[in-house]
Amino acid sequence: MNDNLSNADIVKCENLVYKRSPVMTDNVMHYCPGCGHGTAHQIIAEVIEEMDIQAETIGITPVGCAVLMYNYLDIDMQEAAHGRAPALATAVKRLMPEKYVFTYQGDGDLAAIGTAETIHACNRGENIAIFFINNGIYGMTGGQMAPTTLPNMRSSTSPYGRDVEMMGNPLRITELVAQLPGTYYVTRQAVHTPTYVRKTKKAVRRAFENQKLKKGLSLVEIVSNCNSGWKMSPVQANKWMVDNMFPFYPPGDIKLEGKMLSKD
């Protein structure tokens, strides 16, 4: 086993194992270093590439950091008003039922201003996929408290920590929509480690494939970081996320093939 493979021997087309998906554009993403948005974008791009559905996919971007997602995915995209992406997606899917339609929304977008659109799209059982990025904060506007901000968690509008007596409780909207008859697949994943990236990719793939079944809506929550908003390094933020976000937002499937999974 004593060989002298040099880098030049290895770095050849025939030895390629992984490269950025061609469904991603060459644009440099504007996200902060270590932000989970980029990873989530690439997962979606890879699934579109693998399913060979680039020509049949329409994505709807939110308001928030991911507003410019259309600069990074080489697919047709629409940019919605804050919280309204599920309404746009509803019309797109109903007018073009043969297409694959997804929304990509943050927690402020999906769980605060867009709660009505989210719940009703879920309840109507629109045959779309919702990818929900939950970092517990309004990232783009500078780290304000979101509906998902944890109790006692600091943000720029809860500088002494979220006081639930005064500011209300965080909202587990994913568990909430799982209760609705229109959702077919509801899961919570993450993208901070290779293992979770692989799990999330399976979930995203399932969410796209479910659209063919016409049995309802698939929602994939991705618990993610906002290291700038949380004022931590990317690596610290991922650790903080596991220690603090995961107990409140535990990863795993919540509803599979239209059936709630029991907790035990």
Binding site: L5, N15, Y18, G36, H37, Q42, T193, P194
Partner: peptide
Amino acid sequence: ANCAIVCPDGVITVYKK
């Protein structure tokens, strides 16, 4: 390829032999 799939900016290309 663990590094590449977790890279938020998709800047890592991986080869193996």
